[in-house]
Design a protein around this nucleic acid. Sequence first.
DNA 1: TGCTCATGTCACCAGTCGGTGATATCCGCT
DNA 2: AGCGGATATCACCGACTGGTGACATGAGCA
Lengths: 224, 224
Amino acid sequence: MTVPASTSSSSSQAAPDRGRDRSRTEEAIISAARDVLVEKGFGAWGVNAIARAAGCDKQLIYRYFGGLDGLAEALGTDVARAIEEALSATPGPAATNYAELVAGLLETLVDVLRANPLMQRIIAWELSEPNALTRSFAQARSRALADWIARLRGDIAPPPGIDAPATNAVLIAAVQQMVLAGAATGGFAGLPLRDPADWERVRLAIRAMAVAVYSERPEGEDRP
Amino acid sequence: MTVPASTSSSSSQAAPDRGRDRSRTEEAIISAARDVLVEKGFGAWGVNAIARAAGCDKQLIYRYFGGLDGLAEALGTDVARAIEEALSATPGPAATNYAELVAGLLETLVDVLRANPLMQRIIAWELSEPNALTRSFAQARSRALADWIARLRGDIAPPPGIDAPATNAVLIAAVQQMVLAGAATGGFAGLPLRDPADWERVRLAIRAMAVAVYSERPEGEDRP
DNA sequence: TGCTCATGTCACCAGTCGGTGATATCCGCT
DNA sequence: AGCGGATATCACCGACTGGTGACATGAGCA
């Protein structure tokens, strides 16, 4: 009788002996792709590392996904679905005016983004090496975010005389940069970003800015 | 007679035939290191690519700088010097109150950062793969920025009742993220970042936020 | 002149990468 | 039982990486 070829000679990750089940293998590969991106960064995101993490041969990545691009696309839809349900699960701020609405959304965004290292990696990737791959990621993320905001906004309109799209973009940019810097280096511009107290300062600062800019009445910009 | 071994078989960069001059070669290597980082990104920042761009053998990188770490250190001091003189050359905003001071500083920062792709690469690097290398870069940058601000601030004090360090960090974070996103993808959160008009919107939005948050009197937070 | 040493160049190493063809193994169907 | 096809694994390729030792070349000095 032939020895059962003990399957113990595998990577440190994931039991390698799942039966010949294509769908399960595909899930394992996608999960491994996600794990590699989160734990090793996009610089190490390749067929070899992913196959190693998934405990299967890299040939399967080519067969089932058509290479890295197809795998990225599959992971993209997977990520988009995860984001949408993560956002739809978060309770929106019950605000009656635009300033409080935006302030609440930004605070929620800080929490959601801080709890989502995968999203952080994708954003950093997009900032460093924008390509067709990251573009689909960014597109899905942007769309989910826009839907979420539109859903929670309801019929609350921004005050006139203020460039709301630009202002909101700047505010969201601030949130992103702070979260990324905090995760990467634990601080930004001399401000520590480690303890919950540090993030409470950030949260208050962002809220104060949003409320201030959307509450103050711009001088002489009113319609006659 | 032997043919003069035409030196045309080199990379597209830089004439490879500088006389046996160590200091000149070192400068060429540092310059090549900077160019590779700017044009190819930190993913391609290695001895092979740098030596190729410098038109010399990679062995010289090890001999003169002790490898990539030493070269990074040398480039770091070079960058720090460049930043300091770039910032010292920019005229500070002549403001008499804190809100206008911060608004002017942020607008200047947008311009300086947008005109400095090397700095953008370093920031993106730091956000993606923080290591001893990027830390020295970030440290030099942070110090130069702090000195610049301290120099221009003079004796103008922030209004009481506002967490100025946190607020300023958030504002600077917004500037960084907008500039990085603009350079990487040409837009952010649906807002285009290509034409000067786009950046004018951003500039106005940032100014409005800074002025609003530092002008508005926080209610009931005053000292008695 | 001849010697020395700094400068520069070349060849090579082990390792990893993305990618592909050939082969083994097992399930289901007739 | 036997066959076909899907699933999975192995072995290999060329290219590139960081790193190192050996060698050529030239300038300056005794």
